[in-house]
Amino acid sequence: MTDFTPRIFSGIKPSGGLQLGNYLGAIKRFVQMQDTDFETIYCVVDLHAITVWQDPAELPGMTREVAAGYLAAGIDPERSILFNQAAVHEHAELAWLFNCVARVGWMNRMTQFKEKAGKNAEKQSLGLYAYPALMAADILLYHATHVPVGEDQKQHVELTRDIAAKFNHDYKVDFFPETQPVIEGPAMRVMNLRDGTKKMSKSGESDMERINMLDDADTIAKKFRKARTDAEPLPETAEGLEGRPEARNLVDIYAALSDMTPEAVIAEHAGAGWGAFKPALADLAVEKLAPISGEMRRLLDDPAEIDRTLARGAERARAIAAPILKRTTEIMGLIGR
């Protein structure tokens, strides 16, 4: 078996602004992974964004906002590779090659397409249907061995493993790794502050449903103080959160922001009423998030510097990607590269 370099790849789509779910479910862990033995590669996946219509006047700003979020949260562009996907054309090229490896039946099993397309599947772009092959290309273009994902993305990593295995089998090589998903953390799914049964989303009806990563300290505090709860105080044990989605969500957010387990949060605040817990959560959130939002605003005031940072990252990314793509084409019998 090939001895692959321990390497992490992950990306965030620029489609409407970063919110707390992006930070707790992804970026916070990305920052921590810089201190591990993995080489870390992080991307703004703008090619994924255009699988649905994006205003070309707004997309550059959304791309820079995600980059600013990475940087403000602590991604070091010297220790990690940070770039936007469209700047490395090898992503699109490998995606086409994988379109010829992946099977239609595999794509038909992808639940996210069914959820996003709904009853109008026939009217959706081919890109939306086939984008799991691009996601596989994103990962395997760097021979990434691990991908930090939420539960809702685990299926795509499994597809990536299927594509790698079929490629290796069909061409009788041991070229692509069997990438492993990394799923961990107390707040992998940050839920809506108004409805704890729904995931926090950038496209929710009310801005009070979510914490935007560009919210200032006063707005962050206000949203947590007004977050929906139930009438009961915090339970004595974590099991007491069963059937209480809003309560569980706020406890999970507190746990993730404080690097505690939900059980430890409950032990510390057992029996507390929401009149005490929500202000404590608001204060913690302001302490942790307001410096990030302030730094994001500072970075966004100088978009040219963000662009330079992404361009430097793209050069480093291509140094890894180009030889892997070239070898892929050679294995497949394509000439002229």
Rank of each mutant, 00 (worst) to 15 (best):
S15K: 03
Q19G: 03
I27C: 06
F30R: 08
F30I: 07
D37V: 04
D37C: 01
I41V: 13
C43D: 09
D46S: 01
L47P: 00
A57R: 08
R64I: 13
R64P: 02
V66A: 05
E78G: 08
F83N: 00
Q85L: 04
A86D: 04
A86G: 03
A87G: 01
L94M: 00
F98G: 00
N99P: 03
A102E: 04
M107H: 10
M110V: 05
T111L: 09
L128H: 03
P132D: 12
I139K: 01
H143D: 05
A144V: 02
Q153A: 11
V157A: 05
I163P: 01
I163H: 04
A165S: 05
A165D: 04
F167S: 03
P186M: 13
V190G: 01
N192Q: 09
D195L: 10
G196Y: 15
M200A: 07
S201W: 14
K202R: 13
M208Y: 15
M213I: 14
D216H: 11
D216S: 04
A221E: 04
F224W: 02
E232R: 09
E246F: 13
A247R: 07
R248D: 14
R248T: 07
R248C: 10
N249T: 06
I253N: 00
Y254W: 15
V265R: 02
I266F: 07
A267F: 10
A270P: 00
G271E: 15
A282D: 01
D283S: 08
S293C: 04
G294A: 04
R298W: 11
R298C: 06
R308C: 03
T309Y: 12
R318E: 12
A321G: 07
A321E: 13
K326M: 06
